[in-house]
Design a protein around this nucleic acid. Structure first.
Lengths: 232, 232
DNA sequence: ATCTTTGCGTAACGGTCGTTATGCTGATCG
DNA sequence: CGATCAGCATAACGACCGTTACGCAAAGAT
């Protein structure tokens, strides 16, 4: 035998490089030469691990999904489902330069998915997982009495997914001044509207928790009836 | 002098051809040769009217916007603002093969806008107009007593824009079985949630009518229409 | 020590891209 | 009735693309 290299490990290196290239230079900047260069190799090495450029693209999306998966799993562990839902969605919003780069990545995939069945397949699986996370948390919130029992969790989940994607689009093209707090306000507003008034206490209902001390975050408006005069 | 042709008219023919190419073959299928071929010319003619490929792209988006603008103006004339809002949004949803093609077109632009400032500028103007249409109708609904007076129309308008874009994304990648009626249900649901109970007095709500009957266009684009261009 | 196999760099191939150069055609005007 | 010039086709250019071919270096196996 000859020397052995961890095949999966190498593929991950190239996938990460591809992710970086798309994030910074877009889909049309994605070339096998550039990916190999960023990864610290040449095309000869890359072709050793991938059959085609499309396979590199797929691997990049799988790598990106894996990176955020770790992050997302943390939120699911929070005791209060409704709060976990909020923060999970917040973490997905394009509120920083890095996250906006990630969003450019996914938008590029949307475009590609419409023409490549294989990419479409991958994207469908990504959305199945992402939507499922939200729906699960909504159901948990219902069990915790923090959302109406007759709420259609599937509907609400997909609605939130759509809202987030829509926000992402507007941020990317630079429509309106969609700052981070503003993005969060849209999410909070829709959550409150769908799930109704919040429970005053989370997990273990501490009965005398009357302190109104909130963190520095701007507190979002409540339901529709109280939504007047919000200017920022 | 030599023979004269309508410069703007020619540009429109190429723009329509570019629109068709992107719709059917995506952004990576958009080449100056293909656009010229579809328009019934060759690259020599195209370069006579456009400085670069990017300019063709911009012209294509302006043409697409102009086509839908005519359609949208009809809805604004409806007596009941809330119903007009519904149908305006319905008309934008990717509920047919043709409309899905249009959506592919816009998604391609989102991706491009993130990297080309000039394309971004154009897209921002498109969204300003689209959002403004929705917000105006919401305000009219408020005046007609068909929406709560304390509703933040700007917020609701942008929320609806985001929802529609999010639905478009999910339809394009094929996530869930997002049929036409289902798409409309999401829109209706959010409108009802934000604007509250409907007034009964308005014109009888046409139940999910897809007004796809092609009305006779006022006048066909004058001059010689090229080979396979302009498919409304 | 030698053979075999793997890892990967180098370079070339065929194709397509946006753009540019060039030349024909025919409508218009002095 | 030429002269002229806009309109457009043809073709070539240089760059870059994904992919393939090939060769060498090094590490495990014998």
């Amino acid at each position: 035998m000859a020397r052995q290299v961890d095949h999966n490990e190498r593929r991950k290196v190239f996938a990460a490089a591809a992710l970086q290239v798309i994030t910074h230079q877009g889909l049309e900047g994605l070339t096998v030469r550039e990916v190999a260069r960023v990864a610290g190799f040449t095309t000869g090495a890359l072709t050793h691990y991938f059959e085609s450029k499309d396979q590199v693209l797929i691997a990049a999306s799988e790598h990106a999904a894996e990176v955020v998966r770790v992050h997302m799993d943390e939120f699911a562990l929070k005791p209060c489902a409704r709060e976990a839902l909020r923060e999970l969605i917040f973490s997905a919003l394009p509120t920083s330069a890095l996250k906006r780069g990630r969003w450019r990545f996914w938008v590029a995939f949307w475009e590609r998915a419409a023409y490549s069945p294989e990419v479409g397949q991958v994207m469908r699986e990504r959305y199945r997982e992402w939507t499922s996370r939200l729906v699960t948390l909504i159901r948990r919130a219902q069990k915790e009495g923090d959302a109406p029992a007759d709420l259609d969790a599937d509907h609400a989940g997909r609605e939130l997914v759509a809202l987030v994607d829509g926000i992402g689009v507007q941020v990317l093209i630079g429509a309106g001044q969609f700052t981070g707090p503003k993005q969060r306000r849209y999410v909070d507003d829709l959550i409150d509207l769908r799930l109704g008034p919040r429970k005053t206490a989370c997990s273990a209902p501490t009965p005398a928790s009357e302190s109104k001390g909130r963190k520095a975050k701007a507190s979002p408006p409540r339901g529709r009836s109280a939504a007047g005069a919000v200017a920022q």
